[in-house]
């Protein structure tokens, strides 16, 4: 006699959610993937080429899309997971619109939000035309042209690291991990698209923690002539020519430095996603440091929540890159299966 398939709800259809859903389906479980947006994909949907090797983001998107094309997977889009609660042996999942899903287990993969750069007012995002975020630069890459607000190409671009990360003033003490290497990747991209354009990265520390990252950094200097200035930009203004003027200390030279820029790119950090946090709060899942979800153990229980049958995957627990997100999602699947088998 064939037992009814065990059912798992995956909350959030980003990299983590798609990978987890695919892996579970492959192992013969029935999966419902709930995504708030109209399409699954999460933030990856917006990126152009990926670090560390600058492969087109499309390739990873394609892989993930294929991954969830499985008869065991039911994808519900345009729907938010609002609350997770116990219901007898099962877990009940409340969805927006008042519907409910019953499952044997739930994987939270609600991901991250980009830091709202308006909260760092001194950088002038939303006030000056030519201040954009790293995500908006990806949009420009996808459009194939890098232009200022007046439609012309910039002659000098500055990347400002750690915007909304490592900053007590915006209540985020954590490092977002991916923005240093993203800045290097984007700097190379800009140099390749506009060879005459000067590019500067303003950093506090270069955190090149992954394989090929340091090499990418090296390449950016050796091949692409990207400039690095160690110092936190304190403020930006515009001059009469409508050019941006930033103030920074060149901490290695030990002197304040002023520079005009045509385009200023804010490397916005990662924060716990708002709908994810709302769902966690409603379900009684505790938030940990810097408001990301707290896992049961930082070493050997990093996919476990405090609630039986609920598991975590991806950047809802901490900032990470796609590689780590996929590994984390697979680990969450492993924990889920172990839980279901033991029950």
């Amino acid at each position: 006699m064939k037992e009814a398939l065990k059912h798992i709800v995956v909350a959030g259809g980003g990299v983590a959610g798609m990978e987890a859903a695919g892996a579970l389906a492959e192992m013969g479980f029935r999966v419902t993937l709930v995504e708030k947006n109209n399409d699954p994909g999460g933030h990856l949907g917006r990126w152009h080429a990926l670090f560390p090797d600058r492969r087109p983001a499309d390739e990873v998107r394609h892989y993930l899309r294929k991954r969830i094309e499985h008869r065991n997977i039911n994808v519900i889009t345009g729907t938010t997971v609002e609350k997770i609660r116990h219901h007898g042996h099962e877990v009940a999942v409340d969805l927006s619109g008042g519907t409910e899903e019953r499952a044997d287990a739930v994987i939270m993969a609600t991901g991250f939000d980009l830091f709202d750069a308006r909260r760092k007012e001194e950088y002038g995002y939303g006030i000056y035309d030519n201040v954009i975020t790293s995500a908006e630069l990806e949009d420009l890459f996808n459009n194939g042209r890098i232009v200022k607000a007046d439609g012309k190409e910039p002659a000098r671009v500055g990347f400002i690291h750690c915007v909304g990360s490592r900053d007590e003033k915006v209540n985020n003490n954590h490092c977002s991990k991916v923005c240093c290497v993203t800045a290097v990747k984007q700097a190379i991209e800009v140099r390749k698209m506009i060879p005459s354009c000067e590019v500067f990265c303003f950093y506090m520390d270069m955190r090149m923690y992954g394989p090929y990252y340091e090499e990418l950094y090296r390449e950016s200097q050796e091949v692409h002539n990207v400039n690095f200035i160690r110092g936190k930009v304190s403020e930006a203004s515009v001059n009469i020519n409508n050019r941006l003027v930033i103030k920074v200390e060149d901490t290695l030279a030990g002197r304040p430095l002023k520079m005009e820029l045509d385009l200023m790119v804010l490397m916005v950090g990662m924060e716990m996603s708002a709908p994810g946090a709302k769902c966690a709060a409603a379900s009684g899942l505790p938030a940990g440091i810097n408001r990301f979800l707290e896992t049961a153990d930082h070493h050997f229980g990093n996919n476990l929540s405090s609630m039986k049958g609920v598991f975590y995957a991806g950047t809802c627990t901490a900032p990470m890159n796609i590689t780590d997100t996929i590994s984390h999602a697979r680990a969450a699947v492993e924990e889920t299966v172990r839980y279901l088998n033991r029950r």
Partner: peptide, 13 residues
């Protein structure tokens, strides 16, 4: 108007 211009150049590109 500036925004619309940006949008247009983006679309052109």
């Amino acid at each position: 108007r500036i925004r619309r211009m940006t949008a247009r150049t983006l679309a052109d590109g």
